[in-house]
Each structure stands twice: as C-alpha cells, then as structure tokens.
Nucleic acid binder design. Structure first.
Lengths: 99, 99
DNA sequence: ATCTTCAATCGTATTTTTACGAATTGCGAA
DNA sequence: TTCGCAATTCGTAAAAATACGATTGAAGAT
C-alpha cells in the first residue's frame, strides 16, 4: 500500500475543481455575462437566465467557492465580477490538461 | 414564455459536457496517461490508478461518451487513445469560455 | 421603528455521480 | 469444447448536484 501516490496530484485535483465549476450550462452563461460586462447583478441575471433565483444563488455560490467569481456589495444589490487571477489559473490548468 | 431562449446555446451545452468529462481527477489522470502514451490499456491503468476496475470502466465510458477517447480492440486487451478531433474541440471551446 | 427590496439560505425532492464486488461477456488458447 | 483472461455490465449503496418555493437576513428608505 503506497502512501497516496500522486498520480492524483494537487494540480490535477485543482483542475478538476475548476472543470466542475464549468460543467453546468447556467454557470458558463453566468461567466459569459460577467465576462462581457453585459451584466453584473444577481437580479439582472435572474431575469435573463431560465432558473429560479434560489437556484441562481446556488450556482453563484459554486462559482464563488471555485474562486472564479467574487461578489461586491453595492447596496441594495450585489455586483458580481470575474476573479481574474483564478480565472487565468483555470484557463492555464485546463489548457495544460488538454495539451 | 419565450421559445427556449438561447442564452443556453448548443455551444455552451457542449462546453459544459466537455467540462463535466474533465471534472474528475481520475478522468484527468486517464487523459494524462493516454496523452503521454505512457499507457493505453485498461489493465495497465487499473494498476496505476487508485480505483477498482469496474470504476475505471465507468470513467472510461464517460470519457468515451463525451467523445474524448476511443477504444480499439487489440485482443485480448483494448487499446485506448485520445480522440484528437474532439480533444481539440474541447480545448477550443473551453479556452473560448475562459477568454 | 417599520417597511421594502434584494439576495442568500433553508427545507425538501429528484436525479445524477461515484464507488465497489459479483456476475457476465467475448475471444483466443489449450 | 472448455478454460482463462480482459473488460464491461449489473446490482446496489452512499454521496453530491440540481431545482424549486418559502423563509430569513441585511440594509436603506419612509
């Protein structure tokens, strides 16, 4: 029994985490919206995307947990933005996985 | 009620499908192995990767369903290879999603 | 202090994913 | 034909993802 052979390296796991965050059409649509600056607010997205607001919140949460976006309070709404640093890392890791 | 607004375009859905295929460390490790030519056979992978053979088969099946790999019979074993065409498409779609 | 509004969280149900060992299949060798 | 090996499929269980409406929470406006 080997001590956690790192065939499953931390890098691989991180790549998988990012991929999982990207694995739902709604989440990709969110990123597209944020990326194009077309929209930054939960409420606006809720009008465009075909899901309930609570479901949208869940997807936003997952993107936040993955580090791909962040929310800044701008009362009474919340402005969501891409987290460029992690976004770049995701891009780099995934493109390296698909080399 | 709008007729399936294509905020969720076919392209987005395809991107999500590829991302889902990449969203598990084992599957990424499989692709890494195939990509590096280090190994092509189910049996060889089963020795390296920390999962049961039946579980490995399931992951291989998902990668096949996503179109990222293909298996060629080479009795008594099966030789797995990257499907370069779809692999390229995945790369292109994901990199475009992360632009 | 109360009301409104926006967003997150809760509670819940359903579906999908992940995992394993057992059983099956397919194919060549004996 | 029978045996053996490789890989898949089956049966099953446990965990995670997805979705919704209802409830809660936080903050500014009245």
């Amino acid at each position: 029994m080997q001590p956690t052979q790192d065939i499953l390296s931390e890098e691989l796991k991180q790549t998988a985490r990012f991929a999982k965050a990207l694995s739902h059409p709604i989440r990709l649509a969110i990123l597209e919206l944020l990326n194009s600056q077309a929209c930054c607010f939960h409420g606006d997205m809720a009008e465009i995307l075909p899901v309930a607001k609570s479901t949208l919140s869940q997807h936003l949460k997952e993107l936040k947990n993955a580090g791909l976006i962040q929310g800044n309070i701008s009362s009474p709404t919340i402005k969501y933005c891409i987290n460029r640093e992690n976004f770049e890392q995701a891009k780099q890791l995934l493109s390296s996985a698909l080399k």
